[in-house]
Design a protein around this nucleic acid. Structure first.
Lengths: 204, 204
DNA sequence: GTATTGTTTGACAAAATTGTTAAACAAAGG
DNA sequence: CCTTTGTTTAACAATTTTGTCAAACAATAC
């Protein structure tokens, strides 16, 4: 066996993941990836056959992981407000790790809609579970802790408030002259802001 | 002069705009654009010299237009709540026209940060104007019509609630099995939902 | 040591995309 | 009708990127 053993395959995959999802270099060529990983470009084909295969692999893995983490929190038995807080934590963690996943998805879905269909289709029993979560949202409205609206709007609001600042990060950074530290500070503050904005009880 | 006169240049630009911003085909090749416009590919070089030049032109034009429309509303003398309503209308109009502008910006800014810097830098007097808008936000908090937070968070919330559903549209469509009509209906509903979510007075 | 297996490499081929050029063409003025 | 000007075209060149291959290499088993 070579001195690098079988770690090379993982190294390439991790590097691709970093370039695509963390640094937003979605157009990185096989050469870019090989260079960043410090390996010969041919190895990329040796292990993954083609750029497309590697690309899909990275994408699907990241998406699957995100979905699983979110679902496990969303379907936990924690009280509603606590559940929302946990979701914010999970989502922020994932978005800090992969700030371009969102953008990535949107683009991919458009370049070839249907290709990743199965990744969004509610799993067996998933639709049922989503309905349960939506019922919980409705119950909160009935209790008067969140404003009245279709549960899907609450859902969209929630994910909008969490995700968009990451998607728009470069815009905000230019617009308000923010450096990395300043942006991260804002993001930390947003955990409270989001709760404040979702719940009627405007105290934390 | 040729039979197509000088309309060809505009036709190519419009087609590129449509592909890039409306259909999200950001990777469309010169051939794709020429085909979509029904002209010979060489004309694209004849009028715009290179793909990059055309790409930048489309991008900058769209961005400038969006910014101007937003600024003109943001700096109008309308009462705060009305101003927010007008902003929603303008933003929705623009996003329906160019649903991929946001995504486009994010990617471009990352591929080559600094390249489009001047488009975000607050114009001469622009920073001053942003401060005025932020003061208006603060005044509303003092009046108690919106919850207490740094004005920049209100600003981020506002744009998140408006923009994200467009960015995430393909995801939502798969996730909740929405067709075009259903999605558009949701968007129409969101005008009210956003107001409901931004303002403390949870009635419309 | 030699065979075997999997890994790595550089050289090369193929494909896709962009950019250039020279010639054909079409309209309008003289 | 001939010239001028701007437009359009096809053929070609250049570049970039992906993909293939056979040979070199390294580790382990025999």
């Amino acid at each position: 066996m070579g001195v690098k053993d079988s770690k090379t395959e993982q190294l390439i995959k991790d590097t691709a993941k970093r370039l695509f999802l963390t640094e937003g270099r979605m157009l990185a060529t096989t050469q870019d990836i090989a260079d960043a990983a410090g390996v010969n470009r041919t190895l990329l084909h040796y292990y993954f056959r083609s750029r497309d295969v590697l690309f899909d692999l990275v994408f699907k893995e990241a998406l699957r992981e995100l979905r699983e983490r979110i679902q496990s929190v969303m379907l936990s038995t924690a009280p509603f407000r606590e559940k929302i807080e946990n979701l914010i934590n999970v989502f922020f963690e994932e978005l800090i790790k992969s700030p371009y996943l969102e953008t990535f998805i949107v683009l991919q879905m458009n370049q070839d809609p249907g290709k990743y269909e199965e990744l969004f289709r509610t799993l067996p029993g998933g639709e049922q579970k989503m309905k349960i979560f939506f019922k919980e949202i409705q119950a909160e409205m009935d209790k008067g802790t969140i404003p009245e609206m279709k549960p899907i709007h609450f859902f969209m609001n929630f994910f909008s408030l969490m995700a968009y600042p990451f998607v728009a990060r470069p815009i905000y950074e230019k617009m308000f002259d923010l450096n990395d530290a300043a942006f991260k500070k804002l993001v930390r503050e947003r955990k409270k802001v989001i709760l404040l904005s979702l719940f009627k009880n405007h105290e934390v």
